[in-house]
Design a protein around this nucleic acid. Structure first.
Lengths: 147, 147
DNA sequence: TATTGTTATACTCTATAACTATA
DNA sequence: TATAGTTATAGAGTATAACAATA
């Protein structure tokens, strides 16, 4: 397919993403329900997605300075969201992982999103709802093919 | 339609949004291309969407403290992204609007997103591309019906 | 010698309280 | 008396440089 068509698809996708952000969930609004500063939230999201990790690895991947990780992890530990432990295979290394309490926060957040969205789609007719259902499934499958 | 189905759709949509954020554009990555701190970016995005506005209105709508608006606007003005002017109808009021330079930044950002996405969809076959094109159009129309 | 994580320190971003000007 | 915006100030978040421990 010609490059031009791809650019058009890209345009349409940019618009769709911005519609979703505006109509369904604005990322900033979403973070408000996560009662921690943005960098802390990013660290626990990272740990949620990657599992236990070295502090320096988290810093590198998230673009957070290494010294800044110390107070961030300290506070997350004080809030009971993260656990810090030594790596027996390399005594220089300190690893971190999220706690059950953090997982509960994630579940609450998902429940909140689910409720908000369920409310928004209530405006649609049954017919539209089943169309939307199909569209989401196909779109998700398509997006999964990328990258 | 039963509430249960709506919750299922909500779940699917949450997953789709998180897929899009992961595979296409992570909001944090996206902001990196905007060479200003998050609050500054939020102010110019707000002004982009709402047009000229009172400083206190921006503060209220974005949840930024009123005193914090002063340095934010000062810096945006120094960077040539925002213009500040008096409201003749109420001499207490100071209004702000984005400049042409800010609009150029928005265009560059959109071009950047377009290129990244065009690269990602290059992996798809022509058939898949036209399917994606149709899906995006239908999904956008559906999302526009909400709210 | 290189790497992991921390401490020391300074800079930026932010909010609360108090102020001035205008309504 | 209420509202718009600013100034003064203190606290939180962050990064750079220098360090100790380990590889």
């Amino acid at each position: 397919m010609m490059t031009d068509s791809k650019k058009n698809i890209a345009d349409a996708l940019v618009l769709l993403i911005s519609s979703l952000n505006r109509k369904i969930f604005n990322p900033h609004e979403l973070m408000k329900n996560f009662p921690v500063p943005p960098s802390h939230a990013r660290v626990i999201f990272y740990l949620k997605g990657h599992g236990p990790a070295r502090i320096s690895q988290v810093a590198r991947d998230l673009g957070i300075s290494k010294p800044n990780m110390t107070p961030i992890i300290d506070k997350l530990i004080m809030e009971g969201l993260v656990r810090r432990y030594d790596d027996p295979s390399d005594r220089r290394v300190v690893k971190v992982e999220i706690t059950g309490r953090a997982n509960e926060l994630f579940e609450k957040r998902e429940e909140y999103m689910r409720e908000i969205i369920a409310g928004k789609v209530s405006l649609l007719s049954d017919e539209e709802l089943s169309e939307l259902d199909g569209l989401i499934a196909k779109m998700t499958a398509m997006i999964d093919k990328l990258n």
